[in-house]
Design a protein around this nucleic acid. Structure first.
Lengths: 358, 358
DNA sequence: CTGAAAGCGCTTACAG
DNA sequence: CTGAAAGCGCTTACAG
């Protein structure tokens, strides 16, 4: 059996292809009777409806936006922050009948091709600076909005003041009296391969603001506070890890093996903080008695866990990004939206107590 | 400036369109020198790469699968079960360079059009029986796999034995001595509009197995156990709600207002169970002292919450569905895969104590 | 209200 | 190694 197209139906009914097309796409353009007739024949021939690829090609519009992550999607779905963002984005996309095409970065090479082949009208991009996906996405010459990072001249941006927020986190611990603070930084899974200057990643002098990615911006904020409090930045142990609870445990194990043991751990995200808490629990290290832990994001699980963290409007970031992409403003086509954040102090931070003696 | 296409580049370089196409898609088909030359001109003209819609049309393959939910995506992303499933699905999709196109059902009408226009090679469908999306998806005549429900003759299926698992849940409570059991059933958001026989939804005689959707299958299981234990099914209060924690709270409020108050609540999903627990906490009803609560799914948050529930292999469902779609078996093109489940008894269920006196 | 014509941008045998 | 030709399936002014 040959493939059924508009033409097949047209031939059968004895009308032109145009009319059949109208029957599907502009029903008001023909008599109800004829339309019905056409639909019957379509049904009879088991016609699956106008081919979407052909339609998109002709119309020049897909009705879909691409969402690009720098991690494998399987990691993104394990991260409440990403999921919360998607919830917001989905809300505005759905309202306008726009689909979501999710693209992750399982391994170098694959995603680049997927991005090049994505039938979409625009992209929403999460990505650290220098990541190859940035170039790939930009090259499509479609509307783009970046979230958290990178900030690209002329491209709409949504984020928060990561450096300032991170400074507040570290200051909170320092004010409590902590001096042996360790940091677990969030680094994209494959940053080694991706970063333009991997060796410089920890060089906070370069990490001035959101231009350098939230991961580094936060690091810079921790740095600022330490320096100001007279804690030598060079002595602060820093371990890089991916934003994944399980993987973060390894970093935590390393840090909690240090002697003298840190009295506080700053995690660059809540997900990582949970990993740290997992390891502490395993080893019988009490929180906040023996160890203070701070996260970042305030994902839903942070509250029940009593985690001290920075709240940022995750879902609102998603809706904002969606709106920027779907209905760009004429006056300000590439705005830089910086949203509010707030340090939420809960039960995982306290003055260093017994831990000092360890 | 006119739009740049393969032809623009061909004209500029002085070769045919074919050769330019080869430069992008089959680099081994031409001399490196010529290829380089072509790439330079492409760069110069700011060519965004071969148009994906045109490519897809010509090739007849999109490299994307559609994932269809019966709820708004913003709800799906609020549900750990759905997210866990997506994690599994994403894992196998990514490995083969396949994209994920997510489609929700924000309101009647919208999704139907999105499905008709989705440039995909197949669909993964979650849906209760009689839902309009089922027909819409099937009509595309693409490969489909359904998850949990509905079971459609000739279409690959992935699920668990919901009725049997639900029976175990209810039996657990009945064995503990509960007799005043209330049920919060999960019903798709817009079932009223969607179901073919909304009035029959609660008619368990019809809910024989997974053919009728997990929601009803579970209800049927609760029914079986009650009847067997001599609890009159007609006296069991049932409240329908959506699989959303916040929305479920309303159902819980209603049920906990009943006098005499139920000593146990069976929630059709963990998400709903959390809603019940929220309300109980608000009212100072202790669990399991005053009230036993059981969920279903064993989402990640269930363990820390101590929730008694049914564990099912959420992520594996995703990987299985993905594999069925991406590499269908020749011998058995439409298998019905029923995965294992297990009742996990934690700290939210106990014998009815003080509550009996209420 | 209906149809003939042009064209969306690409890929793929096939011939040279 | 390169090019001419055909065609993927549709929509959209435009003319009647």
């Amino acid at each position: 059996m040959e493939r059924v197209t508009l033409q097949t139906i047209a031939d059968r009914v004895g009308v032109s292809r145009t009319t059949v097309s109208n029957a599907f796409s502009r029903p008001d353009q023909l008599k109800e009777e004829l339309r019905q007739r056409i639909m019957e024949v379509a049904e009879e021939l088991d016609y699956p409806g106008p081919n979407p690829a052909a339609r998109t090609l002709r119309r020049g519009r897909a009705g879909v936006i691409g969402v690009v992550f720098t991690e494998a999607l399987s990691y993104a779905f394990a991260d409440s922050y990403a999921v919360g963002f998607l919830r917001g984005l989905a809300r505005v996309a759905e309202q306008s009948g726009t689909g979501l095409h999710l693209i992750g970065w399982p391994s170098p090479g694959v995603a680049e091709e997927v991005i090049g082949d994505a039938v979409v009208d625009g992209f929403c991009l999460f990505s650290p600076e220098g990541h190859p996906l940035v170039e790939t996405v930009l090259r499509r010459r479609l509307p783009v909005v970046t979230v958290d990072h990178p900030y690209v001249e002329g491209v709409p941006f949504v984020g928060i003041e990561d450096r300032i927020a991170a400074r507040e986190v570290a200051t909170h611990l320092l004010d409590l009296g902590h001096r042996r603070i360790a940091i677990v930084a969030a680094q994209p899974m494959a940053a080694q391969a991706a970063a333009t200057r991997p060796a410089d990643w920890l060089d906070v002098d370069l990490a001035g603001d959101h231009r350098f990615g939230a991961g580094r911006a936060r690091l810079a904020g921790y740095h600022d506070a330490c320096v100001k409090a007279g804690v030598s930045w060079g002595d602060v142990p820093i371990h890089r890890t991916t934003n994944d609870r399980e993987i973060a445990r390894r970093a935590a194990e390393h840090l909690l093996d240090l002697r003298p043991r840190p009295t506080a751990v700053i995690a660059a995200t809540d997900e990582i903080a949970f990993g740290v808490m997992d390891v502490a629990a395993q080893r019988g290290i009490t929180i906040p008695g023996d160890l203070s832990v701070v996260g970042f994001d305030d994902v839903p699980a942070a509250e029940p866990a009593g985690l001290t963290t920075v709240r940022q409007p995750i879902t609102e970031k998603g809706t904002t990004a969606g709106r920027l992409l779907l209905k760009p403003s004429r006056q300000d086509p590439s705005p830089c939206v910086l949203m509010d954040h707030r340090l939420i102090i809960r039960r995982t931070t306290a003055a260093p107590g017994d831990a000092l003696a360890t």
